[in-house]
Design a protein around this nucleic acid. Structure first.
Lengths: 140, 140
DNA sequence: CTTTTCTGTAACCAAATCAGTTTCGAATAA
DNA sequence: TTATTCGAAACTGATTTGGTTACAGAAAAG
């Protein structure tokens, strides 16, 4: 595996849940759709639960359902839930006080990165789980 | 260290090089600005050289200089040079043929990710090394 | 109330990635 | 010819990632 695929898997899970509708699905069910381990699914759904996108209930005939309509779950919300640090990181090497660039760069890059994240998230905000579900149905 | 800081360090190096101007700088000089190892610097500058942003010359009084004016080096070019795979990755788990969502999701996410990368890069394209240099000088 | 099913979480593992380091050959100017 | 510098390979330790096992607790079914 190359880099971080949590976001992709999380979206996959939400679309699968949306597909099931009010019936919901267990982590076991979902793990078959993603072809991974049920614990991996539960870990991700834990993050999505904290973000208020999903509801999980233990016990017999438990499982997960979407906590709101798929139209109201955007990929931006999913991204923030599973990738709260964002994807662009400043380096944390000590500043060299003798170098003007070293003294300034983190501050300057910080605002560029913040802007870049906003641009990324603005795009993600335009796609909802419902959009992806509709496309899935259209092409399936 | 959390995630990948290559992009941040690469930008730092380019601004430092721009600051030095036509004198250029050795990997040893630059490593002092970033507070890291000279080999780390050379590795990154190797990527930037391949991308045509930097020129390196070995030998006594060698070192690196920008291969073009800092106005003509955008952060988007730097990003593509050091992060060619982008920051959003699809998962590569096998498709479950029995599940419509599993069959469609990678294709659908692929185009969303492509769009999202475009949005990110469009923002990065707006900032050049010269911009950061000017801000450095203004605040230093 | 007992049994079964399921979540939630912790602990552990192997593989991958990352930055840092050492080393050395080749290039190049003094 | 000598000193300096890049370029590249090889290795390390720390961290992250996804996968796995294990188990306590919740909750429905009977």
């Amino acid at each position: 595996m190359a880099s971080n695929t949590r976001f992709a898997v999380a979206v996959h899970l939400l679309v699968a849940l949306a597909y099931r509708g009010s019936d919901g699905a267990t982590s076991e069910d979902l793990s078959r759709s993603v072809t991974t381990n049920a614990v991996v699914v539960r870990r991700l759904l834990g993050l999505l639960t904290k973000a208020g996108l999903v509801t999980g209930r233990g016990g017999r005939s438990g499982g997960y359902t979407l906590a709101r309509k798929p139209e109201r779950i955007t990929l931006e919300q999913v991204f923030r839930a599973v990738e709260p640090e964002g994807v662009l990181s400043l380096h944390e090497n000590p500043t060299n006080q003798a170098c003007v660039v070293s003294c300034q760069i983190k501050h300057l890059l910080g605002s560029v990165f913040a802007d870049a994240h906003k641009a990324l998230e603005a795009r993600l905000k335009k796609t909802s789980v419902a959009d992806l579900l509709a496309e899935t149905r259209a092409q399936g």
